[in-house]
Design a protein around this nucleic acid. Structure first.
Lengths: 211, 211
DNA sequence: ACCTGAACACCGTTCAAGT
DNA sequence: ACCTGAACACCGTTCAAGT
């Protein structure tokens, strides 16, 4: 590291996360990676939280680029799927879930894109605001929930889901008849599939308010 | 504390959270409250995570009691609103978001209730599973997102939302025209209102798959 | 102007030893 | 059988001092 800047710290932090996993990103470890005293970071970021948010925004680079122009639904659907993917790629970020507004450029472009497509589709600004918040809550919330398993590979995830299905199947059938009966159907597909299903149903519901 | 049990530890932990806030619940602080050595807790819980989950389940007591019988939608809607409220009442729990299956009784009753109402409504087990996961992702995910502000009172929350609207309004109107134009409409109502809207649109979409 | 390093006030968890 | 207490291996953050 020739020079310490916000950008260079973020870059190194992402390398550290890539190598050691996002739970292992501590101020001390990051200090080692940037070859400076850990506390030097506090010269560039007010807190670790602020650093994590900057990392989060870096991960969102390009999510609003080249989105489908076929329809507002397709565009927003693809954007939400990309946001989720970006969040799951850095599981530590998903735990940073928060209702605060975007303070960084990539985040701002997301808001702008969603509001613009909704506006063009015919939502007035009140309806667009409710729809925007609904989409973000589902997308970010779902990523937070799924992030616990995001570090496993797909075979491991499939194995874990199978275990969980067995747990349901082993419940007392008198008290939990539907859980036992439906156990084999729970956790269908991948977490991405389940998110896509939820997103599509939410978009159905939102589209229904237009007519 | 006359005797240390899982239940008595959970009860005391909830008292500590009530007094000091859920971020302040540490093993050491809880040890003080139960008037025992902090590490005695590890005799009853494998980890702090296991303790938090037990606390989480305690907070869900009664959520499946006396639900509306008017329709599957009304029943599930009310249940999701109660689950959200229970999670927001203990903000620490919302950060425990996870995709793992319920391992405690109150959680299990939630799954059973949702699957049962969906089944009665005509969803087959595959469709019911997708619908169940969609509802849970939105409900728990949204609670996680909103938990950061749950400890503030409603006046403080309203003030914070007003600030966030100003942030949007202050953006560059050339780059973010819709965000600036729609700023006054963002964060409409309370977080509960926005969740209810999202939940209703998701239920619209799910109901649409029945016909 | 920028960075260091000691220090503060904490964490969750383990395990040999006590009663 | 149950609990203690020392210890381990860490945290995020502040601030006077250095260069």
């Amino acid at each position: 590291m020739t020079r310490l800047t916000r950008d260079s710290i973020v870059t190194t932090a992402i390398e550290v996360i890539g190598k050691h996993g996002s739970e292992q990103l501590s101020v001390r470890r990051l200090g080692e990676a940037i070859d400076a005293d850990p506390t030097a970071i506090y010269r560039h970021f007010r807190s670790k939280d602020e650093l994590l948010r900057a990392i989060g925004d870096r991960c969102l680079i390009g999510v609003t680029d080249d989105l489908p122009t076929t329809s507002w639904r397709e565009c927003i659907r693809e954007l939400c799927i990309r946001i989720r993917a970006a969040n799951l790629a850095q599981p530590a970020l998903a735990t940073l879930v928060r209702g605060a507004p975007p303070r960084h450029d990539n985040e701002r472009r997301i808001t702008e894109t969603i509001l613009a497509r909704l506006g063009e589709a015919g939502f007035d600004s009140a309806a667009a605001a409710f729809a925007y918040h609904a989409l973000i809550e589902l997308t970010i919330g779902s990523a937070a929930i799924d992030s616990s398993l995001a570090s496993e590979d797909s075979a491991a995830r499939a194995r874990i889901y199978a275990e969980w299905r067995s747990d349901y199947a082993a419940l007392d059938a008198g008290m939990f008849p539907r859980s036992v009966g439906g156990a084999a159907s729970l956790y269908p597909g991948t977490a991405d599939d389940r998110f896509a299903y939820a997103l599509d149903r939410l978009l159905d519901g939102l589209a229904g308010t237009l007519s």
